[in-house]
Nucleic acid binder design. Sequence first.
RNA 1: UGGGGUGUCGCCAAGCGGUAAGGCACGGGACUUUGACUCCCGCAUUCGUAGGUUCGAAUCCUGCCACCCCAGCCA
Length: 537
Amino acid sequence: MNFIEEIITDDLKNKRVDQIITRFPPEPNGYLHIGHAKSICLNFTLAQKYNGKCNLRFDDTNPEKEEEEFCQAIIRDVEWLGFKGDVYYASDYFDIMYECAVKLIKKGKAYVDGLSAEQIKEYRGTLTEPGKPSPFRDRSVEENLRLFEEMRQGKHPEGSLTLRAKIDMASPNINMRDPVIYRIVHARHHRQGDKWCVYPMYDFAHPIEDAIEKITHSICTLEFEDHRPLYDWVINECEFDPKPHQYEFARLNLTRTIMSKRYLKKLVDEGVVDGWDDPRMPTIAGMRRRGYPAEAIRNFCELIGVAKANSEVDVALLEHCVRDVLNVKADRAMVVKEPLKVTITNYPEGKTEMLTIENHPDNPERGTREVPFSKELYIEKEDFKLNPPPKYKRLVKGGIVRLKGAYIIRCDDVVLDENGEPVELKCTYFPESKSGQDSSGLKPSGVIHFVDASQNYPCKLIDYDYLLTDDDSKKDFMERFNPNSKTEFPNALAEISLKNAKAGEPYQFMRNAYYCWDTKTNAFIQIVGLKDSYKIK
RNA sequence: UGGGGUGUCGCCAAGCGGUAAGGCACGGGACUUUGACUCCCGCAUUCGUAGGUUCGAAUCCUGCCACCCCAGCCA
């Protein structure tokens, strides 16, 4: 139970509200990222849990930044995450907002200002000094009404006039020093076209949007705490009832991850990544393409909690959530990233036997598959060491190891290239050690995977890592990308049964962790990497 | 130096006057035809700090310190 839930249960108990209504209000100026997922999960699960509803509302009040494409992408992402809400657009309320502005003018609570942007800034004062009133602050109601109407009719150029709330130029809260609530923008709106050339500012529009939709709990991030008095001012002066209330929580930060939409957009616009759904992006779309299950993201959002302290969550927790779901959902398969040839010297030439291997170790219902085995095989380069580190459990010269689902083999000879690197292993196998009917009595310390040399399926494999290597990189992110954020393994070989891989379906490639087939790159792409404890120490 | 917030384990986070939940990470062990998974066990005498109130404080009071946000005609 987080602090917002406490407020809600209290409000319900004391009958301050009958039914809670929340909203997720993105601006359609980019794709959603994992930070938005926190807000989505919060707002929608609150509504679900307390029998209320949650609206998906586009806060499209700035025509210069917003696009229809982003609206569609956002709807898709929210649905993919597993939530559904009625879709609304703030721009559909422009008429009402305009009327609210007129109402404020009539009440003497708003005025048309002729100061330039620079002058407004000057007059606003500083953090420590009060501002001073604009010379236009005391225009008559009639003149304000006339001018505002002229603004709407397009009779004034951008920047020449603004509508300002008349509050308090000396307020210690800068947001209350006569904030601009309407501005002139001669731009085409993605939904309204050229109907408008005056657009409401966030601080004015948002409370009205909430009031219209009868939002009971308007949940936003910490940086809007200072705006709450203005939010309440708008609700009161526009005389809305019932009155929505704003609550704030700390936004999500993740280690090694850049979350700023401005930067993400730059990465896309400059072609540093494939697009908003590049698997390295912290976007919902990127994670979906990479194979993160929606369930994992939901679990993650649940686990991190909701509070007001600024924090940075370790990405390891996200990855844990992903593995946690995948471990149950993903079929196992054998793939070698970097093949090393193995010849079974005592295995008959030309013979191939099909081994039956379970698709999931803990769940027999998932069935089995047939994997070919013959004289020539490939194993993972990393699974053989000429000079093994201490406690190495895989194959060494003269040692034995079990081939997963097959036989125990012993490495007798190593063929080296001119650099002294192993290029082929000459091994013998123990026929009586066949998986499931082992009577050899041998106890190999390790199990490794393999693919058949003749019947395997060549495939491209791509490992993704985070774009940034460390937290410092957030500062000058454009110059300091993780050079290994994308690693291709063009020589990877998969067991033949993997030919049937479906796009987006997760597999656990033993030791290489989780992958899924991506149709855009025609490759298996990495979902999550190895846990540290899985690596050779 | 104005206003608004926040400070509990390496990272999140419960706790709401009765003597520090949980998860991640980490360490140790068991199991294992994945060094995975699973399963045990360990991991804050201490809650930014200094005082005070109280039989008793992370929780109440006071002072101090640190960090975050605010001076867009962005959201």
